[in-house]
Amino acid sequence: MALPAQLRSIQHHLRTAQEHENRDPVVAYYCRLYAMQTGMKLDSKTPECRKFLVKLMDQLESMKQELGDNDSISQEVVGNAHIENYALKMFLYADNEDRAGRFHKNMIKSFYTASLLLDVLSVFGELSEENIQHRKYARWKATYVHNCLKTGETPV
Protein backbone atom coordinates (compact mmCIF):
# COMPACT_ATOMS: atom_id res chain seq x y z
CA MET A 1 0.00 0.00 0.00
CA ALA A 2 1.40 3.44 -0.92
CA LEU A 3 2.67 5.47 2.04
CA PRO A 4 0.60 8.65 2.52
CA ALA A 5 2.70 11.83 2.25
CA GLN A 6 1.89 12.78 5.84
CA LEU A 7 3.76 9.66 7.00
CA ARG A 8 6.85 10.12 4.79
CA SER A 9 9.21 10.44 7.79
CA ILE A 10 8.73 6.74 8.61
CA GLN A 11 9.29 5.47 5.06
CA HIS A 12 12.97 4.59 5.59
CA HIS A 13 12.20 2.72 8.80
CA LEU A 14 9.56 0.72 6.92
CA ARG A 15 12.00 0.02 4.10
CA THR A 16 14.58 -1.17 6.65
CA ALA A 17 11.90 -3.50 8.03
CA GLN A 18 11.31 -4.95 4.55
CA GLU A 19 15.06 -5.42 4.00
CA HIS A 20 15.27 -7.38 7.26
CA GLU A 21 12.08 -9.42 6.84
CA ASN A 22 14.05 -12.65 6.45
CA ARG A 23 17.53 -11.57 7.54
CA ASP A 24 16.47 -10.50 11.04
CA PRO A 25 12.69 -10.59 11.73
CA VAL A 26 13.21 -9.05 15.19
CA VAL A 27 14.71 -5.94 13.58
CA ALA A 28 11.81 -5.89 11.09
CA TYR A 29 9.27 -6.15 13.93
CA TYR A 30 10.70 -3.26 15.95
CA CYS A 31 11.14 -1.04 12.89
CA ARG A 32 7.43 -1.51 12.20
CA LEU A 33 6.53 -0.94 15.85
CA TYR A 34 8.48 2.35 15.78
CA ALA A 35 6.80 3.29 12.50
CA MET A 36 3.38 2.48 13.99
CA GLN A 37 3.91 4.56 17.13
CA THR A 38 5.40 7.45 15.18
CA GLY A 39 2.75 7.24 12.48
CA MET A 40 -0.04 7.50 15.05
CA LYS A 41 1.55 10.68 16.41
CA LEU A 42 2.02 12.09 12.89
CA ASP A 43 -1.49 11.56 11.55
CA SER A 44 -4.05 8.95 12.51
CA LYS A 45 -6.96 11.21 11.51
CA THR A 46 -7.03 11.40 7.71
CA PRO A 47 -8.68 8.32 6.16
CA GLU A 48 -5.68 7.29 4.02
CA CYS A 49 -3.33 7.48 7.03
CA ARG A 50 -5.71 5.55 9.24
CA LYS A 51 -6.12 2.90 6.55
CA PHE A 52 -2.34 2.59 6.21
CA LEU A 53 -1.87 2.34 9.98
CA VAL A 54 -4.57 -0.32 10.32
CA LYS A 55 -2.72 -2.42 7.71
CA LEU A 56 0.56 -1.86 9.52
CA MET A 57 -1.07 -2.94 12.80
CA ASP A 58 -2.41 -6.10 11.12
CA GLN A 59 1.13 -6.86 9.98
CA LEU A 60 2.55 -6.25 13.47
CA GLU A 61 -0.01 -8.53 15.10
CA SER A 62 0.66 -11.36 12.67
CA MET A 63 4.44 -10.92 13.14
CA LYS A 64 3.82 -11.07 16.86
CA GLN A 65 2.01 -14.38 16.38
CA GLU A 66 4.87 -15.84 14.35
CA LEU A 67 7.68 -14.55 16.59
CA GLY A 68 5.84 -14.66 19.93
CA ASP A 69 8.12 -17.28 21.52
CA ASN A 70 11.26 -15.29 20.67
CA ASP A 71 12.59 -13.63 23.87
CA SER A 72 13.54 -10.52 21.87
CA ILE A 73 9.83 -10.02 21.17
CA SER A 74 8.29 -11.22 24.43
CA GLN A 75 10.77 -9.40 26.70
CA GLU A 76 11.41 -5.70 26.05
CA VAL A 77 14.81 -5.68 27.73
CA VAL A 78 16.02 -8.47 25.39
CA GLY A 79 14.53 -6.67 22.41
CA ASN A 80 16.25 -3.47 23.41
CA ALA A 81 19.64 -5.24 23.60
CA HIS A 82 19.02 -6.95 20.24
CA ILE A 83 18.31 -3.70 18.41
CA GLU A 84 21.07 -1.76 20.16
CA ASN A 85 23.70 -4.43 19.42
CA TYR A 86 22.63 -4.63 15.80
CA ALA A 87 22.68 -0.84 15.38
CA LEU A 88 26.13 -0.53 16.94
CA LYS A 89 27.45 -3.42 14.82
CA MET A 90 26.38 -1.48 11.70
CA PHE A 91 27.84 1.73 13.10
CA LEU A 92 31.22 0.09 13.86
CA TYR A 93 31.45 -1.52 10.41
CA ALA A 94 30.84 1.85 8.74
CA ASP A 95 33.18 3.66 11.14
CA ASN A 96 36.01 1.17 10.44
CA GLU A 97 35.57 1.61 6.67
CA ASP A 98 35.57 5.37 7.17
CA ARG A 99 38.79 5.34 9.22
CA ALA A 100 40.42 3.06 6.67
CA GLY A 101 39.54 5.58 3.98
CA ARG A 102 37.26 3.13 2.19
CA PHE A 103 34.27 5.19 1.06
CA HIS A 104 31.48 3.29 -0.74
CA LYS A 105 27.71 2.83 -0.90
CA ASN A 106 27.72 0.00 1.65
CA MET A 107 29.38 2.08 4.37
CA ILE A 108 27.04 4.99 3.65
CA LYS A 109 24.05 2.67 3.94
CA SER A 110 25.42 1.15 7.14
CA PHE A 111 25.82 4.57 8.75
CA TYR A 112 22.32 5.54 7.66
CA THR A 113 20.67 2.27 8.75
CA ALA A 114 22.47 2.52 12.11
CA SER A 115 20.92 5.98 12.58
CA LEU A 116 17.45 4.63 11.71
CA LEU A 117 17.84 1.76 14.19
CA LEU A 118 18.88 4.22 16.89
CA ASP A 119 15.56 6.00 16.18
CA VAL A 120 13.85 2.62 16.66
CA LEU A 121 15.53 2.22 20.06
CA SER A 122 13.25 5.01 21.31
CA VAL A 123 10.33 2.53 21.45
CA PHE A 124 12.04 1.19 24.61
CA GLY A 125 12.36 4.61 26.22
CA GLU A 126 14.62 7.66 26.26
CA LEU A 127 17.83 7.28 24.22
CA SER A 128 21.09 7.48 26.16
CA GLU A 129 23.23 10.55 25.46
CA GLU A 130 25.79 8.25 23.82
CA ASN A 131 23.18 6.83 21.42
CA ILE A 132 21.91 10.32 20.62
CA GLN A 133 25.49 11.29 19.68
CA HIS A 134 25.95 8.08 17.67
CA ARG A 135 22.73 8.74 15.79
CA LYS A 136 23.65 12.35 14.99
CA TYR A 137 27.18 11.38 13.87
CA ALA A 138 25.97 8.43 11.76
CA ARG A 139 23.32 10.50 9.98
CA TRP A 140 25.78 13.35 9.37
CA LYS A 141 28.51 10.99 8.08
CA ALA A 142 26.11 9.19 5.74
CA THR A 143 24.99 12.49 4.24
CA TYR A 144 28.54 13.93 4.06
CA VAL A 145 30.13 10.90 2.36
CA HIS A 146 27.14 10.52 0.01
CA ASN A 147 27.48 14.16 -1.11
CA CYS A 148 31.27 13.83 -1.54
CA LEU A 149 30.89 10.76 -3.75
CA LYS A 150 28.18 12.57 -5.71
CA THR A 151 30.39 15.62 -6.39
CA GLY A 152 33.56 13.57 -6.88
CA GLU A 153 35.28 14.99 -3.78
CA THR A 154 37.36 12.74 -1.51
CA PRO A 155 35.76 12.63 1.96
CA VAL A 156 38.09 13.72 4.77
Binding site: L33, S44, R50, Q75
Partner: peptide, 27 residues
Amino acid sequence: TGSVGTSVASAEQDELSSRLAKLRDQM
Protein backbone atom coordinates in the same frame (compact mmCIF):
# COMPACT_ATOMS: atom_id res chain seq x y z
CA THR B 1 -22.18 13.26 7.51
CA GLY B 2 -19.49 15.45 9.08
CA SER B 3 -20.19 14.37 12.65
CA VAL B 4 -20.68 10.73 11.66
CA GLY B 5 -17.36 10.80 9.79
CA THR B 6 -15.62 12.30 12.80
CA SER B 7 -16.98 9.74 15.22
CA VAL B 8 -16.01 6.89 12.89
CA ALA B 9 -12.51 8.37 12.67
CA SER B 10 -12.12 8.70 16.42
CA ALA B 11 -13.54 5.23 17.03
CA GLU B 12 -10.98 3.78 14.60
CA GLN B 13 -8.24 5.82 16.25
CA ASP B 14 -9.23 4.52 19.66
CA GLU B 15 -9.25 0.99 18.32
CA LEU B 16 -5.75 1.44 16.89
CA SER B 17 -4.50 2.82 20.21
CA SER B 18 -5.92 -0.10 22.16
CA ARG B 19 -4.52 -2.64 19.68
CA LEU B 20 -1.10 -1.00 20.02
CA ALA B 21 -1.34 -1.01 23.81
CA LYS B 22 -2.33 -4.68 23.75
CA LEU B 23 0.57 -5.54 21.43
CA ARG B 24 2.99 -3.84 23.81
CA ASP B 25 1.46 -5.29 26.97
CA GLN B 26 2.03 -8.77 25.64
CA MET B 27 5.73 -7.99 25.18
